[in-house]
Design a protein around this nucleic acid. Structure first.
Ligand code: ZN
Ligand code: ZN
Ligand code: ZN
Ligand code: ZN
Lengths: 149, 149
DNA sequence: GTAAACTCTGTAGTAACTATAGAGTCAAGA
DNA sequence: TCTTGACTCTATAGTTACTACAGAGTTTAC
């Protein structure tokens, strides 16, 4: 099986397969005389494993870690559980962030009806820095919520 | 005000400020004789606007678009509303994806108690490709759910 | 024999920064 | 005045997980 067929059968692109090889997620296969990669069906399972992990948003480095664990089958699997737990926490916190963001966007959207001109746009107005409205006692330390991923 | 002070006052890092300048989000300021950037307080407002937008996860290119809209204040602000609406949809869909992911991870986590060895780990077992269990009628087209951002 | 289809390596691009390296500028103290 | 330290400059590389070439070589079919 050459790389093109493997790509079709695995659902990974040719470049992705070569990339995984370069990153050490799958081992370098034999080559034909003409230097073409030659795969057997075992690599299909490895790619499937990787795809399953990627579908859970595990990073390649985490997957690499899991692969290396599989190569020492007698060690305890605690590390696996921890990785999933850590991941769960990250996903949960990301969801919370996005929900806050969603609320902010919803609220912002309400600030403007249609058909105004840009300088009267309620949304743009809201995004501008708050004018220092009160002459006595400045308190302006609020930084807008928001997170990245 | 030199760039260091601007960084402190705006909450953006020095490199970020220079990056925004390179990307055309803020205009290039005057320079001192020694070639140091010299800012006035107007740029503080621009940076604040950008930060507010970034907190809503608007991309730099979207922000650039908003900035350019601000420079033609008489055009209708429809485009602003559309941008926010599009954004809302993207955030909502991302949240849904993550909630699915979260469910999958939770379920996966249940597959393994502690203190097993790697080759008996329920989690790793679950991540491996499903063995073609039934001898009659192969049906294995299920691709695992999951999304990226 | 030749054209099409395939594969190879290596490089650059993506988003929004961050982190250097190596050089120049400026203010204050000895 | 010299020097030290803090600051700034540009340019470049790194981050993540790929994708998309360019330019070359290989294989297959007609
Ligand atoms: Zn993780
Ligand atoms: Zn509007
Ligand atoms: Zn957007
Ligand atoms: Zn386990």
């Amino acid at each position: 099986m050459k790389i093109g067929e493997l790509a079709k059968r695995s659902g990974c692109s040719i470049q992705t397969i070569r990339y995984y090889e370069k990153e050490g997620l799958i081992s370098a296969p034999e080559r034909t005389e003409g230097n073409f990669r030659l795969y057997n069906s075992v690599v299909l399972e490895k790619l499937s494993f990787i795809k399953n992990c990627r579908a859970l948003d595990l990073t390649l480095s985490e997957i690499k870690h899991l692969v290396s664990l599989q190569n020492s089958p007698e060690t305890p699997c605690e590390a696996v559980n921890e990785m999933i737990d850590t991941h769960l926490l990250a996903v949960e916190s990301r969801i919370e962030d996005l929900q806050k963001l969603h609320g902010n966007l919803k609220q912002l959207r309400l600030k403007c009806g249609n058909a105004r001109s840009v300088d009267q746009c309620g949304i743009l107005g809201e995004l501008l820095p708050k004018p220092e409205r009160s002459p006595s006692g400045t308190r302006n330390e609020r930084s807008p919520s928001g997170t990245r991923k």
